[in-house]
């Protein structure tokens, strides 16, 4: 099992931005539409739903309960298993401090 994702392969997809080699999520530089294919750790993955500009994509398998790492630091924990190439947001991660609010209340 590899500890680190293949950072170069991720960076070869110009639509994605990996902020730290430790990260298990990358940011989308531009909106990636559902059905488009992205290069994750050397594998082409078809995106299941739109990933808006700035939002996050998993770059390696993340197990439920595992920390989400961005900027090389934890930004919360996975609430379910997340596969590489999947959209990462409030539907599958949560804060380790305080709930996140949307206009429809806490998630």
């Amino acid at each position: 099992m590899t500890e680190k994702p293949d950072a170069n392969a991720v960076l070869n997809d110009r639509r994605l931005l990996l902020l730290s080699p430790r990260d298990n999520v990358a940011a989308a530089r531009q909106t990636i539409a559902a059905g488009e294919r992205i290069l994750i750790a050397g594998q082409l993955v078809t995106v299941a739903q739109d990933i808006p500009s700035g939002h996050k994509v998993a770059v390696r398998p993340i197990a439920a309960g595992e920390k989400i790492i961005k900027y090389g630091a934890p930004i919360g924990s996975a609430t379910r298993d997340i596969a590489p190439g999947q959209y990462v947001h409030t539907h599958n991660i949560k804060s380790d401090y305080l709930p996140t609010y949307t206009q429809r209340g806490p998630v």
Binding site: A27, G54, I75, H89, T90, S95, D96, Y97
Partner: peptide
Amino acid sequence: LGHASFAPGNAEGGLSTIEEKSLG
């Protein structure tokens, strides 16, 4: 207070948690 320094627009803009907003 039951609420972080986090507005709904932050989540719509792709920030999932207060820690992510903080690091940025």
